[in-house]
């Protein structure tokens, strides 16, 4: 029993997968020469590889999409977690699967655009993937503790330009979106000093703000919301083109003169390079249908503030092309290169 978790709730998982495995092995060889037929897709279990542990934003997105696709197709879709090395283990695994649309990567910023600039030596290349669909954007918020005495983004920037070297900001780790985003903002705001304190994971980072060790943090809206309502954190700006439905009083970065700042992360599906466009379009269409489900919207769009994108493979490719160039600059600015 491997951890193909969904078997426990999938109604048709166990048997069809046993049979699927056999036919899969036979098919795998045939797939190399014969393009998958888009009409028949999917005629066996589809696997979504999540490059993180169960429990967490990417895993949740993967599971929602898997359940949605399973309903649309009436075919079982399972989630397989392959965590490690900031998405790289899972991404390398998918890159080397057959390009038939039956193994897809649930990719977030690290796998989508960042890692190619962060790591010197990756076990895969960006060209090992074909884009399928840009699923959603998850937005972040810049928060400060009440003790800092600022209540707007402008006051914050003024204070940091004057006295920034006295203050710290935290992140869940070097090269994380929260770290890179803050360095990006520091640069966009005209440059100020502020010391980066890397933690390990968002839990301890939030604790760092509550205990007064850090004076600024970029964090997901979901995580920050209760601390904001309890008065323990002061929100300065949210990312995204519109305000978060969870915090309608907090202005966006764009409203306050920083239109280029894109924080938080995007989530999308990637397929191994060579997957036929018809198959990828079919997946993108099914994902769009799944993400427009009212129950999903109520819980994750209204509740968690997720922004649904649901783009086509071509639109997603265009997005990745621009974002990849932005990512290169951001990684350079943050000095987040690893080797």
């Amino acid at each position: 029993m491997t951890r193909k978790n969904n078997d426990l709730i999938e109604t048709r998982g166990w048997w069809s997968r046993g049979a699927g495995l056999l036919s899969g092995m036979a098919l795998a060889t045939a797939m190399a020469v014969m393009p998958a037929s888009a009409q028949d897709y999917p005629d066996k279990t589809v696997t979504l590889v999540v490059p993180y542990n169960p429990g967490g934003a990417t895993d949740t997105i993967g599971r929602i999409v898997a359940d949605g696709l399973a309903k649309v197709w009436d075919q079982s879709v399972v989630v397989e977690n392959k965590p490690g090395a900031g998405s790289n283990i899972g991404a390398a695994y998918v890159a080397h699967q057959p390009a038939d649309g039956y193994t897809l990567l649930v990719a977030t910023d690290p796998a989508l655009v960042l890692n190619q600039w962060v790591y010197d030596d990756l076990p895969y290349k960006a060209s090992d993937f074909d884009p399928v669909t840009h699923l959603i954007n998850v937005h972040s918020i810049l928060v400060v503790p009440p003790s800092l005495g600022v209540s707007t983004l402008e006051e914050f920037v003024d204070l940091m330009k004057k006295d920034g070297s006295k203050y710290n900001y935290g992140s869940p780790g070097v090269g994380d979106g929260s770290h890179i985003g803050m360095e990006w903002f520091k640069n966009e705001a005209g440059g100020f000093e502020m010391t980066h304190i890397p933690y390990t994971g968002m839990g301890p980072t939030v604790q760092g703000m509550l205990s007064g060790d850090i004076q600024a943090l970029i964090v997901s809206v979901v995580t920050a919301q209760q601390h904001i309502e309890a008065g323990k954190m002061i929100p300065l700006a949210v990312s995204g083109s519109v305000r978060s439905p969870m915090l309608p009083d907090v202005p966006t970065f764009a409203e306050q003169g920083y239109p280029t700042i894109r924080l938080g992360f995007s989530a999308g599906l990637l397929a191994p390079a060579g997957t036929p466009l018809e198959v990828r379009t079919k997946i993108a269409d099914a994902a769009r249908e799944a993400l427009s489900d009212p129950a999903f919207r109520e819980k994750f769009v209204d509740g968690f503030g997720y922004e649904v994108v649901s783009s086509s493979p071509d639109e997603f490719a265009e997005f990745l092309k621009t974002e990849s160039e932005v990512a290169r600059k951001k990684v350079e600015l943050a000095g987040a290169k690893k080797n």
Binding site: G84, A85, P198, N339
Partner: peptide
């Protein structure tokens, strides 16, 4: 944690 450099991983991504 502070620099993001790999230590004693011998180029195994699994040890990152």
């Amino acid at each position: 944690v502070n620099s993001g450099m790999s230590r004693y991983t011998f180029s195994f991504f699994e040890l990152a």
